[in-house]
């Protein structure tokens, strides 16, 4: 198999928790992420599933290079990220991009959409001014925002779905090879969510773009991902091909997650009711 673009080799993240009940604080370390290995290959979609506090976002931040792992190492195209400098470091920062749950909050409210998307083109790719304008239009077009209508708008004039697309356009501007997407569609309305998912899928096919999808939505996982990793309490409890794993989950947590996901089928109501009335702990 090819070299993975991005790889975590048994990484751990320890957070200090200080207890201040004495004169000199004693520090206890807590493992937010505990010895996890992940590799992401070109054009591959890996989903990271787990509840809040499972460490999935912490792992994402380590892969982005925002948080150096306490143990283990992150590798970019086979090279340890910690040792990168100069051009190699710039390349890492350019090729590994992020899309957050609410990208609107990370857009500069005083920059027009065009300016926000142009920024990485100027900084990361150092394109000449004329080329930047043309590229911005192409990118906006790609994410389904008509350039003429949206280029000069400010973030607050856009809907959540549109802002999310701007966030994706901005991430794409750097011509990344992998995007870490932390709940990229969970703030979107259902009718828009599908559009954004289709966009991400199209980009993956067009550009061999790889994703790490951090999400708790199993529908999204099923629709887009090739592989799933299930995390709980900082540890990897289960992983495998999407269809196999979601059809016959092995770990208790994965089973619970599947059972808990609401299904648009009123027939399940009777079952829920019985469960609710019986489920009360004495």
């Amino acid at each position: 198999m090819s070299t993975p673009i991005l790889e975590a080799r048994s990484v751990s993240q320890l957070f200090p928790i200080r207890s201040r009940q004495r004169l000199f604080a004693r520090t206890v370390m807590q493992r937010a992420v505990d010895g996890i290995s992940v590799s992401i290959h070109p054009g591959e979609v890996v989903a990271l599933v787990g509840e809040s506090g499972s460490g999935k976002s912490t792992l994402g931040r380590m892969l982005l290079g925002l948080l150096p792992p306490s143990e283990g190492s992150i590798h970019f195209r086979g090279e340890p990220v910690a040792g990168l400098s100069g051009d190699a470091a710039r390349r890492f920062r350019r090729e590994v991009q992020v899309v957050f749950q609410d990208t609107g909050a990370s857009l500069n409210p005083r920059h027009t959409i065009g300016q926000s998307v142009a920024l990485p083109l100027q900084h990361n790719l150092r394109l000449p001014a004329g080329e930047v304008g043309r590229r911005v239009d192409t990118l906006l077009d790609q994410v389904g925002l008509a350039p003429a209508r949206f280029r000069e708008r400010l973030p607050h004039e856009l809907s959540g779905g549109q802002r999310q697309r701007v966030g994706i356009a901005r991430a794409l501007a750097s011509e990344p090879s992998v995007i870490i997407a932390d709940e990229p569609v969970s703030a979107l309305d259902v009718s828009v969510r599908a559009q954004v998912l289709e966009l991400l899928d199209r980009l993956r096919r067009q550009r061999q773009l790889a994703y790490l999808f951090i999400t708790h939505d199993l529908g999204v996982v099923r629709a887009l991902a090739d592989r799933v990793l299930v995390m709980q309490g900082g540890q990897l409890v289960e992983s495998g091909e999407v269809d196999a794993l979601l059809t016959s989950p092995q770990h208790a947590y994965t089973q619970r997650l599947l059972a808990a996901t609401p299904v648009p089928d009123p027939a399940r109501q009777a079952q829920r009711l019985a469960q609710a009335l019986a489920g009360r702990p004495a």
């Binding site: 009718s191 969510r193 899928d201 529908g219 999204v220 099923r222 629709a223 887009l224 648009p264």
Partner: peptide, 13 residues
Amino acid sequence: MLGPDSRAGNLFS
């Protein structure tokens, strides 16, 4: 809504 058969490529919006 994303159902058990929803896959990228056939998603409706």
